[in-house]
Amino acid sequence: MPTVLRIGSLRVVIYPNDHRPPHVHVIGEGCEAVFNLNCPSGPVEIRENHGFSFKRALAIARALEENLAHLCEEWRKIHG
């Protein structure tokens, strides 16, 4: 599970054997969430949230959107 981005103490990962649509898993702080990227232009949408507060999840989504081009490129590299 390659870490493709760090947001503070959080790891943003893409699983090599995962499925479409393009998405990332955000892991850390004892929590995990899955965000759909909606490549190439977003918006990033939360699909699953296990433990992050609503406010924290929104902040993560904003950080992912700031890095959307990079994340979509990483998804493409891993999944074609």
Rank of each mutant, 00 (worst) to 15 (best):
R47F: 12
L64G: 09
Y15T: 08
E45R: 03
R11F: 00
R6T: 08
R76K: 15
N17P: 15
A59M: 10
W75G: 01
V44A: 10
H23F: 05
F52I: 03
L71N: 09
A63H: 14
G51K: 03
H19D: 03
E66K: 08
D18F: 00
I7K: 02
E32G: 02
L5S: 09
R56D: 08
W75L: 01
L58F: 06
S41E: 07
A59H: 02
C39T: 13
E45M: 12
I46L: 10
D18E: 08
L71D: 08
R11D: 13
E29N: 11
L5H: 09
L71E: 07
E29G: 12
R56N: 09
R47L: 06
G42L: 04
A33E: 00
M1G: 15
P2I: 12
G51H: 04
V4Q: 04
V34W: 00
V24Y: 03
K55L: 13
F35Q: 02
E74W: 00
L64N: 06
L68Y: 03
I78R: 00
V26Y: 00
V4Y: 01
R11S: 14
R20D: 06
R56F: 04
V4R: 03
P22E: 01
P16W: 08
E73R: 08
V26P: 01
I14P: 06
F52C: 08
I7F: 11
H70E: 10
M1S: 15
A33K: 00
P2Y: 01
G30P: 15
H23S: 02
G8C: 08
W75P: 04
H19V: 14
A69V: 11
A69C: 11
L68V: 13
D18G: 09
E48D: 06
E74K: 12
L68N: 08
K55S: 15
A61V: 05
K55G: 14
F35V: 06
V24T: 07
E74V: 00
V24S: 03
L10P: 13
R11A: 08
N67M: 09
R56V: 05
C72T: 06
E66N: 12
A61R: 14
E29V: 09
P43N: 06
P22V: 04
R6I: 00
M1H: 14
E32W: 03
E73V: 03
E66R: 05
E32Q: 12
E29D: 14
V12Y: 09
F54S: 14
F35M: 05
K55Y: 09
I60N: 09
A57W: 05
I78T: 12
E32N: 11
K77R: 13
R76W: 04
G8P: 11
V24M: 05
E32P: 00
I46H: 04
V13M: 08
P40R: 12
I14D: 05
E65Q: 15
L5Y: 12
A59W: 00
V34I: 15
K77H: 12
K77C: 10
G51T: 11
G80D: 06
N36T: 06
